[in-house]
């Protein structure tokens, strides 16, 4: 019924235009469009489109980041209304994500977080330089299904093992899965430290996370 509005929403995210996306979100609320529909039929398809073209090499990192920002602006307006209506998005899984202690690189981690959140996961981003105990506390607090641990440096990747061990010591393993990513990581490294998965890129991380949640 609101196809024109949804199309404008998709386009605002594709354009990475936060002013447009937030005014469209406000318009949705003002005209009685269910916020969940605005998210799932309007903004999310825009971000999925950007993610797909990024994977195909047609769009670039700045396009992804600006699209995510536009999406965030829209969500910031729609989410309070979602809460008020006591409706929630169907959550595929809950993910806690962060870059390991001693490492401040976040581009890859941010992309993974963004792709997961737009693919129906509820993502809590702990930021960079995250100590193992913060991963454990956040996993417990948010009842995380998956903990995503990023590291860019060979000198900090050992921190991924520490997170796996800390979650185990806290009694959260194996029910809380751990996925690892970043330039030095690999499937072999994930196997070695007892993590549940590894992905080369943000698109693959979504596939991996869905697989771990038992969703096709």
């Amino acid at each position: 019924m609101h196809e024109v509005l949804f199309e404008a929403m998709r386009q605002s995210v594709i354009d990475g235009d936060p002013a447009a996306s937030s005014s469209l979100a406000a318009e949705a609320l003002a005209t009685g469009v269910p916020p969940l529909d605005a998210i799932d039929q309007g903004f999310v398809p825009g971000l999925s489109h950007v993610g797909k073209l990024f994977g195909e090499g047609e769009l670039f990192l700045p396009d992804m980041m600006l699209a995510a920002r536009a999406m965030q602006k829209a969500l910031a307006i729609l989410e309070p209304e979602l809460k008020r209506l006591a409706t929630t998005r169907t959550v595929v899984g809950r993910v806690v994500i962060g870059t390991v202690k001693g490492d401040i690189h976040e581009i890859g981690k941010n992309l993974v977080g963004m792709m997961l959140s737009t693919s129906g996961f509820e993502v809590t981003d702990l930021g960079v330089d995250v100590a193992p105990e913060r991963f454990v506390a956040a996993a417990r607090e948010h009842n995380a299904d998956i903990v995503g641990v990023s590291a860019l440096l060979t000198t900090t990747m050992a921190g991924q093992r520490t997170v796996v061990e800390s979650l185990a010591a806290a009694g959260l393993r194996p029910q809380t899965r751990v996925i690892v990513g970043g330039a030095p990581a690999s499937q072999a490294w994930a196997d070695e430290i007892g993590a549940d998965g590894y992905s080369e890129d943000a698109i693959g991380a979504v596939t991996l996370a869905r697989h771990l949640m038992g969703v096709a």
Binding site: G16, F60, P62, D63, M65, L66, R69, I107
Partner: peptide, 8 residues
């Protein structure tokens, strides 16, 4: 900087 419109 990656999020600045000028970057894109």
């Amino acid at each position: 900087f990656l999020e600045l419109p000028e970057t894109r």
